Simulated scan of single mutants.
Amino acid sequence: MALLHRAEIRPTKLELLSAWLPGRPWFQGEAAAGVERVAAYRFDDPAGQVGIETLLVRAGGGPVLQVPLTYRGAPLGDAEAWLVGTCEHTVLGRRWVYDACGDPVYAAALAGAVLAGAGQAEEYFEVDGHREHRPPSMVLTVDGAWRATAPGLGAIDRVEDGDPTRIVTDAVELAVVRHVGTEPGPAGARLSGTWDGQPAPLPLASAAPR
């Protein structure tokens, strides 16, 4: 479950991405146009400490890009290369925003979603002590899940920041599509998604044991 807050964030997520995305090797689009949100989905952190959200965005007339993000209340060690930026959240305070492909909490959540079919997090707003459900903007499906529970990842060996971005661990290889609509590889279980205006499922990520 993802518990959300009605809060102001400065700079906004899209402002952070508008500055950060043009420097990525897989970026395509109109950098001067900034980015607009297309859809999004979330995963759960079982420890409840890290926010995990994947945004689908577009820069001008460019392709739909997939950008997984993690939100943390303190810097992640040895992850400066994956830092998108920091922002001020009126409820939670300062947040460190990372490209989630460099965050082990995201890797574990993605492996659980793809290999064990854990699915996306249910989203709720907390309003005056009550929780209001927020309908998802995407529907995720998994083809080929083969475990009843999320597998142990082991240590992350390396992350290759391309399209797809590959996250290689001791036990699993994950691939995250950056240009949505392209194939993720490697062969294995696959995560796909649909959203308003995109009724046919498009691949988002894949996972395979090593």
Rank of each mutant, 00 (worst) to 15 (best):
R190Q: 12
A189F: 08
R72S: 00
P25M: 10
P186Y: 04
H89Q: 15
C101P: 00
T12R: 07
L56S: 00
T86N: 15
A31G: 11
E30G: 11
G34V: 05
W146A: 09
D103N: 08
V114S: 07
A175Y: 02
Q66L: 10
Q66M: 08
T141Y: 15
G193M: 08
R94Y: 10
G154R: 11
P164G: 00
P11L: 00
T70K: 05
A148T: 14
A111T: 10
H5F: 12
T70S: 11
L55R: 13
E122W: 02
C87N: 06
R158K: 10
E36C: 15
R210W: 11
K13R: 12
R10C: 06
A31H: 08
G29E: 13
P186E: 03
L153H: 01
W96E: 04
A113S: 13
R131Q: 04
A100M: 05
Y41P: 04
A32L: 10
V142N: 12
A205V: 03
W96P: 00
L3K: 09
H130R: 05
A116M: 14
S206A: 11
A175F: 00
D161G: 06
A175E: 01
D45I: 05
V105W: 02
D163R: 03
D163H: 06
G93A: 11
E122R: 08
H89Y: 12
L92V: 10
L140Q: 07
L3C: 13
I9R: 05
T149R: 15
P199W: 07
T54Q: 05
T12S: 14
G77E: 09
V38D: 03
V177C: 04
A111Q: 06
W26D: 07
R6K: 11
S192R: 07
A148S: 14
W195K: 07
A118Q: 02
D196C: 03
P75Y: 09
L140F: 12
Y71S: 06
L56I: 10
V159Q: 05
E132I: 14
A187C: 12
G181N: 15
L4N: 08
A40S: 15
H89K: 09
P203S: 09
T182P: 09
P136N: 09
C101D: 01
I52R: 00
A116I: 13
V38E: 05
D163V: 07
T182F: 15
A81I: 15
T90R: 14
R166F: 08
P75M: 11
Q66T: 09
C101F: 02
G34Y: 01
G181C: 14
L174C: 08
L110S: 00
A208P: 01
Y124Q: 07
V159W: 00
G112L: 14
Q28P: 03
D163Y: 03
G60K: 11
A109D: 02
R166W: 07
G117W: 04
L140M: 13
A40N: 15
R24K: 10
A175I: 03
A208R: 03
C87L: 13
A208V: 09
G77P: 06
E30V: 10
R10T: 10
G34C: 06
R10E: 09
G77N: 12
E80S: 14
R190H: 09
W96G: 02
L16A: 02
A118R: 00
V177N: 00
P199Q: 07
A81K: 13
Y124D: 04
P209M: 13
A107H: 00
R24Q: 12
Q198G: 03
H89I: 11
